[in-house]
């Protein structure tokens, strides 16, 4: 039975990581939102599974938060924003998809090497969960820097935060307070981002951040940026 618990937890963690790659790969905004919702759903499932196998009821709250906020409220809200602001649905990426994937895979390799090296004394489940969590964080960061659109940057940020939650639920004894505060931080960030969307939109008629850069009076755009 322990093997089954372990395998399932492992599977859920890996699924979160897989959806991260999906985020990296996805080029259309609505599909991006859907993938993000999926990731949040899987994350909620992973949290619930951890709550079940460790018998820690507070993790159910984490799962519920992830499910309601990230899988439903935020994607729906973003969906409505996109519709209302008539944002172009295609995301242009600063880096080619192939290159992004190669970098993503190298990041995952790096996280595995790192976590396996550092936490050689910890339990196996914790180690592998930590590895995938760190990968998700790094991939979220990668997504933030390879996308030009503000909405996709926000999604990158949220998925980065998903990685943090994944790490938190994998470690035993992480108090609920931490998770709650992380969740609220994300909520605040989401609100701030939303307000920014409207302001940027009002001023520039687009959410493409390049216009922000030219507004700051900077030099010509670099070829790779």
């Amino acid at each position: 039975m322990a093997d089954f618990y372990y395998d399932t937890a492992h599977l859920l963690g890996a699924l979160v990581l897989l959806t991260s790659f999906g985020l990296l790969y996805q080029r259309r905004l609505f599909a991006l939102l859907n993938v993000f919702a999926t990731q949040a759903f899987v994350l909620a499932a992973a949290a619930a599974w951890q709550a079940f196998i460790h018998g820690e009821p507070h993790l159910y709250i984490t799962a519920l938060l992830a499910l309601s906020l990230k899988a439903i409220v935020i994607p729906v809200a973003l969906h409505r924003i996109i519709l209302r602001l008539e944002i172009p649905r295609a995301v242009d990426s600063a880096l080619g998809v192939g290159m992004t994937m190669v970098i993503g895979v190298s990041l995952v390799t790096l996280s595995i090497l790192l976590v396996m090296g550092v936490t050689s004394g910890a339990a196996a489940l914790t180690r592998e969960d930590l590895a995938s969590a760190l990968s998700v964080v790094l991939l979220g960061l990668l997504m933030m820097i390879t996308r030009r659109n503000a909405v996709s940057q926000v999604i990158g940020f949220m998925s980065l935060e998903n990685g943090l939650i994944l790490a938190a639920i994998g470690v035993e004894g992480m108090p609920l307070v931490v998770e709650m505060s992380v969740a609220f931080a994300v909520m605040v960030a989401f609100i701030v981002f939303g307000i920014f969307f409207f302001h940027i939109r009002e001023r520039f008629d687009t959410l493409d951040l390049q216009n922000l850069e030219t507004f700051r009076g900077e030099r010509e755009e670099r070829p790779w940026s």
């Binding site: 600063a94 990041l107 790096l110 996280s111 090497l113 790192l114 090296g117 550092v118 790094l138 960061l141 990668l142 933030m144 820097i145 030009r148 951040l209 390049q210 922000l212 850069e213 700051r216 900077e218 030099r219 940026s225």
Partner: peptide, 28 residues
């Protein structure tokens, strides 16, 4: 002083990855 937001983020990302690599290499 005149870099784009994404370039600042890339700098931080690069620094983070570099440090992680250093840790990974020195650990193993």
């Amino acid at each position: 002083q005149f870099m784009t937001i994404r370039q600042y983020l890339s700098l931080m990302f690069g620094a983070l990855v570099l440090l992680l690599v250093v840790v990974a290499v020195t650990q193993s």
